[in-house]
Design a protein around this nucleic acid. Structure first.
Lengths: 328, 328
DNA sequence: CTGTTAGCGCATTCAA
DNA sequence: TTGAATGCGCTAACAG
């Protein structure tokens, strides 16, 4: 494997000159520049990242820790983040935490050892030891989608309040009064924020504030299906159901179809989080779409700002309502 | 930032002993072992990956290059691969090629510079310069899902022939004769293999071999929708449609619904590639499910075998049919 | 079992 | 502008 030493020898210049040319750090004469480049090309020279990292104390690598890349929100975010990172010369290390603090810590340990320059983190819950350690080492970190209590870091995520507002308006416009709400865990900032916005906004939108219509799962399909069944078992018969995230809506839909048939008994379904296939679902699902790509790009840009020593401003990305209500 | 030197000093041992303890490479006395570990813990020591990589000439990092992580097949595969890699002490570098040779090469260049120990590659087409370069440097590589012409590398992917066989059996059992086939590009091994298996198996399964029923898109939703419309425009009226991959089926479904109404005029749809939501689609979609997780795990295991100097055996992972046909 | 030494490949410093 | 020397943090070889 050709090293920079080989390149320098072949080009007939000193090691320093070769380095300066190849890393473009300082002025070099056109002649030596040309010869070094030629030699590098001939030898198929590729800079040794780890050696460079050791010397420069930076790796040009960012870490991305999500709960589960299979979640379309995260895969879309990861795609955008990777593109943006690579456009700026950064590689992306990926890890899945699977909503498990131990796995998250394991991944963070690996990231720390690999000496990533910065971290994009979708928090699983409260701060873990490894996260504290990274914080202590002043590794630049930005938060995705969820906040961490007691930790003040730049945040890039969905504007939950605005999104819920869109749903409330839509429900009102459609004339719904008895609306079931299947929420998520209050321990997650997303779950808490959406619940607060929805519950608080019902009255002003002509929606019943009956507690029997409200239940919560754990942001998984199964948990949400169970919550939906609990609501139906209370004997209430909503005309619309609002699922607080994508998986929750799917679970609610499954329960509705099981109980009320393939058309969900005419109940309208609206979701926070949109999946492409909602257009083809039966019944079709209206949804608030959060812009995962914009969040990913914004987060990387914020992280890069941090790396430059500037400060990053949190961003709440607005959502968009995709109205798929059947109209006669 | 504490280095191993600090740890050694604090523990009152030599540098070598500290290294031996922390990397577990050789025998050390219980007493020094204990003191080194204690010192490391007190100092919050984290091994410097790049320095270690420089010395050991390996990085404990694998590269994963896919066309698009947003594709559920790849995100599931990536999830499984990352878990498997991490279980074996490897980090995973992710890159998206977006079906673009330049982006693929760019990503491979980054991987090469980062000196990944091995590569999981979903090829975009023919071998590119950077791939040739990696091949020349003898970087262990395994192929995902698609083959590359003229390059013999361990392959981990779906058993297309078996999967198509499942679909043919299902079509026959359901009594379909006029079946439309929306395929993919012949230039991709997946597209070519599925087409060959299907077209060749029709006669034996009592399916019409009329060319008017066959068309192909480019494995995107839009391309497939256009192909489906072309078929319908020929005046044929199939009783079932077979989409050669997930996106293709979605496109075909979209076209069917546009032309024939929300129930697709009673046409049954069957797909190579299953999405969870197919159960909720209207009409419900029967599908052959390829086990992306098994492919990801198998590929990582194969790559690890290569890294150990053993050889890896290609695997064709069998698919499973998920029958969602409406039965009276 | 252990301490010391050398050197992985590179960017940067210091003289020239 | 350049060459030579230095050291980033670590592991492996070598002597003890």
């Amino acid at each position: 494997m050709a090293t920079i030493k080989d390149v320098a020898a072949r080009a007939g210049v000193g090691l320093g000159t070769a380095s300066r040319v190849l890393s473009g750090s300082a002025q070099t004469s056109p002649s030596s520049r040309e010869r070094v480049l030629a030699a590098a090309a001939e030898l198929g020279y590729v800079a040794h990242g780890p050696a460079r990292s050791l010397r420069r104390a930076r790796t040009d690598a960012l870490g991305l820790l999500v709960s589960d890349i299979r979640n379309p929100f995260f895969s879309e975010l990861a795609h955008a983040a990777e593109q943006e990172a690579r456009a700026h010369g950064y590689a992306l290390l990926l890890a899945n935490a699977n909503e498990d603090a131990d796995q998250a810590d394991d991944a963070l340990r690996t990231f720390a050892s690999q000496r990533i320059d910065g971290l994009l983190l979708s928090p699983q819950g409260p701060a873990t030891p490894q996260l504290a350690s990274l914080l202590a080492r002043a590794v630049p970190i930005v938060l995705l989608n969820r906040r961490i209590e007691g930790v003040d870091l730049p945040f890039y995520g969905t504007d939950n309040e605005q999104g819920v507002g869109l749903v409330l308006d839509w429900l009102q416009e459609r004339g719904h009064r008895d609306v079931a709400y299947v929420g998520g865990p209050q321990t997650m900032s997303t779950g808490a924020e959406r619940a607060r916005a929805y519950l608080g906004g019902r009255a002003a939108h002509g929606i019943a504030t009956d507690d029997a219509l409200v239940d919560a799962g754990d942001f998984t399909t199964d948990g949400a299906a169970a919550a939906m069944l609990r609501i139906l078992d209370r004997g209430v018969r909503p005309t619309a159901v609002f699922g607080a995230n994508g998986a929750t809506t799917v679970g609610a839909l499954r329960a509705l179809r099981e109980r009320l048939g393939a058309d969900a008994g005419g109940v309208e379904v609206v979701s926070f989080d949109d999946f492409d296939w909602f257009a083809y679902a039966s019944p079709a699902i209206t949804a608030v779409r959060n812009d995962a790509a914009a969040i990913g790009v914004g987060a990387v840009q914020g992280l890069l700002a941090l790396l430059r020593g500037e400060d990053a401003t949190s961003q709440r990305i607005a959502t968009e309502l995709v109205d798929r209500a059947a109209r006669s």
